[in-house]
């Protein structure tokens, strides 16, 4: 399982991110999902693109590899779960994840991250972020038997996917035409 981020539809509104915070009432500076405005210079024209990213539930999760206490497990369905109970707050995972995903909770002195709303999924609900997206730009897809094409594994601004093999897939944004002032 992984996220499908439709950058063509995404408007960078942060509703997904805030819905995640609302659902888990997380600490102010802990962001399981983050919407990144992508640097203008990543595209040829000054563009205002966004990437809504949470944990990529990677196929080769670095977090899982480096964690000394085995706080990370990868579920059968691919979800990378972080067990806060085991975590001792060594921050190794935060260093190792190329996507700045594990977030340190200063109050609990432990890491936390998106567990793909495992509880909600297990109840048959959509993830809180997917449910909140006003333009249906975000969804969770099951890779088993997935045959649709047209997805890419990275977009400008997304760090090298060869390291951890993220399961996040993207749909490219379309670039509209711009007519600028003559001055």
């Amino acid at each position: 399982m992984g996220f499908l981020v439709d950058a063509e539809r995404c408007i960078g509104c942060h509703a997904c991110e805030m819905a995640c915070k609302n659902e888990y009432q997380s600490e102010p500076n802990v962001r399981w999902r983050k919407v990144y405005p992508i640097n203008e210079t990543e595209y040829s024209l000054p563009e205002r693109n966004h990437l809504s990213l949470a944990c990529n539930h990677c196929e080769k999760p670095e977090c899982l590899r480096v964690c000394p206490v085995r706080a990370y497990t990868k579920r059968e369905d691919g979800i990378v779960i972080h067990d806060q109970g085991r975590c001792i707050g060594c921050k190794m995972c935060a260093m190792a994840c190329p996507y700045e995903v594990p977030q340190y909770n200063v109050r609990l002195k432990k890491m936390e991250k998106c567990n793909l709303c495992d509880g909600r999924l297990d109840q048959g609900l959509k993830t809180a972020c997917e449910a909140a997206c006003p333009v249906e730009a975000l969804s969770v897809i099951d890779f088993n038997g997935f045959t649709k094409y047209g997805f890419v594994i990275a977009l400008p601004g997304f760090p090298d996917p060869s390291i951890t093999k993220p399961t996040t897939r993207f749909i490219k944004p379309r670039i509209g035409a711009q007519v600028r002032r003559d001055q």
């Binding site: 899982l64 590899r65 480096v66 964690c67 000394p68 206490v69 085995r70 085991r86 975590c87 001792i88 707050g89 060594c90 921050k91 190794m92 340190y104 609990l108 002195k109 432990k110």
Partner: peptide, 25 residues
């Protein structure tokens, strides 16, 4: 002192399978 939970540091010895931090410890 670097750990959030120093008293549970013993757990850091449990992932020698893949964690160099475990191995180091």
């Amino acid at each position: 002192l670097h750990l959030g939970h120093p008293f549970n540091a013993y757990r850091a010895l449990t992932n020698i399978g893949s964690s160099w931090l475990s191995r180091e410890a």
